[in-house]
Design a protein around this nucleic acid. Structure first.
Length: 727
DNA sequence: GTACGGTATATAT
DNA sequence: TATACCGTAC
């Protein structure tokens, strides 16, 4: 997020920078920026839950580049979320969720190209991914540090203490934390944009003798930052105008004058805003960081430096009492959110070495070398406990705990594995022709969930078999009441609610339900199923070839079984999610599945109103859910192979609603409705339709690039549409 | 002239 | 994740 328009605003304080010009220096790196870019290149793989290290390699490319210039990188990672950023994080989460839902929807409609772009937006960078990079860096003797909270504050501290002379980031917020020299937009050619705090007065149009960094920070906060939304109608330009106008240092008094100074009589600055402003300011000044030299958490600036009342620091984080925990958080060994231990590496341990990996020769901030430079710093022996097999209160060794936590983390990676039921590989090879895409728009291809052959778990049936309803095996109506598959529609609204209610009524009315899962079958039955499995796989592979589908998951034929209900009960009662009514340990994938289908995260209870299926239709809706991860992960007995094998299947007969549409066809028609709206109704925004832009790309490009003056190049480098001009 | 709020698009390979 | 672009409102 950062400060909107800040980088263009500080143009006068910035200059081009080549890495060759800063040889021998140390740079702190906002590593999540690199990870985000790296993730883009493998977003689909990640969304499908496939293993990839493309993002690690991408980051290492930058690391290697820095090392080649004899620059020592310190990779800094974000830690815990601050309460102040809860709203921002929620927005991001919602946005990712929306992208995820949209991607899933488009996949169901077979519109893979569009789905792909949404999938790129829904992939998040997890700490597990960060840890993977951290481990690579350890083997290269490249320093990493996980900030207790925001990497920005940590980097600013490293810069302030001259442990790092430069900071590499894309986040303009960093200037507010008091960083001295920031490199934005660094590319793999070693070229970037250097913004120097010493020159910020030039950007503000303020005389050097009258300038103070506090003015700049206050201007940015007023214009709107991550910790405080701007007042309506106030941006950087007006904030700057106000700050230059006022001489009042006490912001309680000064802020009240904004309406009169800016001639905005309707603007109201209430006490709440002033309080929040002071909190935001304190957050930038006093956020907690980790001091690797002294091995302790501390504030970026001491409260005494500004005589700040601690009550304004509610958003600046809290001190971790356990110094050992703080150290391991900083080393990357803990998941910053759960504080669960994922690794046990300490600087005192021998640096891990990997064949063919070149190790940097720089001194580490974690080694004694740096401490020798600060003789006053007492050396703390606060991490030796992890060298031993420590037995904790649940009789597990630390190593076992780490292993267990890693398993859980890994399971979380499979969050969007629902996408995995579709494949893109063949589609990717050739993009659909114009005619095809028009045709696709008109009549979407049959959704994979409409046909049983798209469902890797569905039993192949002959037409005769299909016309015969499967015998009922579960008559537990109370169990069924828990479940109600939602026919997802991008539009939502009342119509959908009515539809869901209709569906629910239908479920209550029609008891017979088939529950099928290997988890709920007897051991003997399982063995039998396993024997059958290869055959099924073969058949399905054939089907998938036909369908340009290449789902890599193991296939499971689900059979009705009389022991289902009893086994199911047993499983449910042993499952924490059933005991508690909530699933605190539910894997993300099960949540996703539940979200997608409006099904509670009960691993072992899936349903479909079989009797409501018309005799003459084979339109089973197969939705594969990974929710069984929940069971295996909770008991920590699963292996990856288990996870792959233990997919459950829900067969949803979809005619329980009054119409005969399937979930996907409803969604499809909803999408069609959306797309078929006239442009003026569909577009809420004010921009021209993209077609208008696309119609004249050449002339536009020519017009822009045809006469490129040096000035223009510089402007475009800053991303200028129009440079803010200050009066 | 400035800010806002919407859409469109780039990021990597 | 970010920005670029653009029409409108004030």
């Amino acid at each position: 997020m950062g400060i909107t328009g800040l980088i263009p605003f500080v143009e006068k304080a910035s200059s081009r920078l080549q890495l060759k010009d800063i040889r021998g220096s140390t740079v702190a790196v906002d590593t999540y920026c690199w990870l985000h870019k790296g993730v883009f290149g493998c977003a689909e793989k990640l969304a499908r839950g496939e293993d990839t290290d493309v993002y690690v390699q991408y980051c290492l490319k930058y690391v290697q580049m820095l090392l080649s210039y004899d620059i020592k990188p310190i990779l800094v990672f974000d830690g815990q979320h601050l309460p102040a950023k809860a709203l921002t994080e929620k927005r991001r989460r919602d946005s990712r969720k929306q992208s995820k839902e949209r991607a899933a929807e488009l996949l169901r409609l077979g519109r893979t190209e569009e789905a792909r772009s949404h999938m790129r937006r829904c992939v998040d960078v997890t700490h597990d991914m960060a840890l993977r990079l951290i481990k690579e860096c350890r083997s290269r003797n490249v320093d990493c540090i996980v900030a207790p909270y925001e990497a920005d504050a940590q980097m600013a501290w490293l810069n302030k203490t001259d442990l790092a002379q430069y900071i590499i980031t894309e986040d303009s917020d960093l200037t507010l934390f008091g960083a001295k020299k920031i490199i934005f937009k660094l590319d793999l050619n070693g070229s970037g944009l250097l913004v120097e705090a010493d020159k910020l007065h030039l950007a503000m149009g303020c005389k050097e003798e009258k300038y103070h960094f506090e003015k700049f920070r206050r201007m940015c906060i007023i214009s709107g930052c991550d910790y405080l939304d701007s007042l309506p109608g106030i941006g950087l330009a007006k904030a700057c105008k106000f700050i230059l106008k006022t001489e009042q240092d006490d912001m309680r008094i000064a802020l009240k004058k904004i309406p009169s100074y800016l001639n905005m009589r309707n603007l109201e600055v209430d006490d709440e805003y002033i309080e929040n402003f002071l909190k935001a300011e304190a957050t930038f000044k006093h956020m907690f960081i980790y001091n690797p030299l002294e091995r302790r958490m501390q504030r970026l600036c001491a409260l005494e430096d500004y005589e700040t009342d601690e009550r304004y620091c509610s958003n600046a984080g809290t001190l971790l009492e356990d110094s050992d925990q703080a150290l391991h958080l900083a080393l990357g060994n803990l998941n910053p959110f759960s504080l669960k231990r994922l690794d046990s590496w300490t600087p005192e341990k021998a640096w891990p070495t990997t064949k063919n990996v070149k190790r940097a020769k720089h001194k580490s901030i974690w080694q004694g070398n740096f401490q020798k430079q600060n003789p006053a710093t007492p050396k703390k022996e606060n991490s030796c406990a992890l060298f031993f097999k420590k037995v904790d209160f649940v009789s597990k060794t630390v190593d076992e705990e780490i292993e267990a936590n890693q398993k859980i983390e890994k399971a979380k990676q499979t969050e969007a594995q629902v996408f995995n039921m579709y494949s893109f590989k063949v589609k990717r090879k050739r993009s659909p022709s114009r005619e095809e895409s028009i045709d696709q728009e008109r009549t979407p291809p049959p959704s994979p969930v409409q046909k049983s052959r798209h469902n890797p778990f569905a039993k192949e049936r002959t037409a005769d078999e299909a016309s015969q309803r499967s015998p009922v095996v579960c008559e537990n109506s109370s169990l069924l009441r828990l479940l109600s598959p939602k026919k997802a529609s991008p539009l939502g609204g009342e119509a959908d609610q009515t539809r869901i209610n209709t569906l629910k009524r239908s479920i209550f009315a029609k008891e017979p339900v088939q529950v099928r899962s290997r988890f709920f079958t007897s051991q003997a039955e399982q063995t039998r199923l396993q024997k059958e499995q290869p055959k099924d796989e073969e058949n399905e592979e054939k089907d998938e070839q036909e369908l340009d589908s290449s789902s890599s998951n193991k296939k499971l034929r689900l059979e009705k079984n009389d022991s289902v209900v009893s086994n199911q009960k047993r499983q449910c009662s042993s499952s924490p999610c059933c005991e508690e009514g909530t699933d605190t340990e539910t894997t993300a994938s099960s949540l996703l599945a539940a979200q997608e289908n409006n099904v509670p995260s009960h691993s072992g209870s899936q349903e479909y109103p079989a009797t409501s299926q018309p005799e003459n239709t084979t339109k089973d809706t197969g939705i594969r859910i990974k929710s069984l991860d929940l069971l295996v992960d909770n008991t920590l007995e699963s292996t990856d192979a288990d996870r792959n094998n233990n997919d459950a299947i829900i067969l949803l007969s979809d005619d329980s609603c009054s119409s005969e549409q399937t979930a996907s066809s409803i969604s499809s028609s909803a999408l069609q409705r959306q797309n078929s709206l006239p442009a003026n109704k569909r577009r809420i925004g004010l921009s021209k339709p993209s077609t208008a832009k696309k119609a004249t790309p050449k002339s536009k490009t020519n017009g822009k690039l045809g006469v490129v003056s040096e000035n223009q190049t510089k402007l475009s480098m800053f991303g200028f549409q129009k440079r803010p001009v200050l009066k």
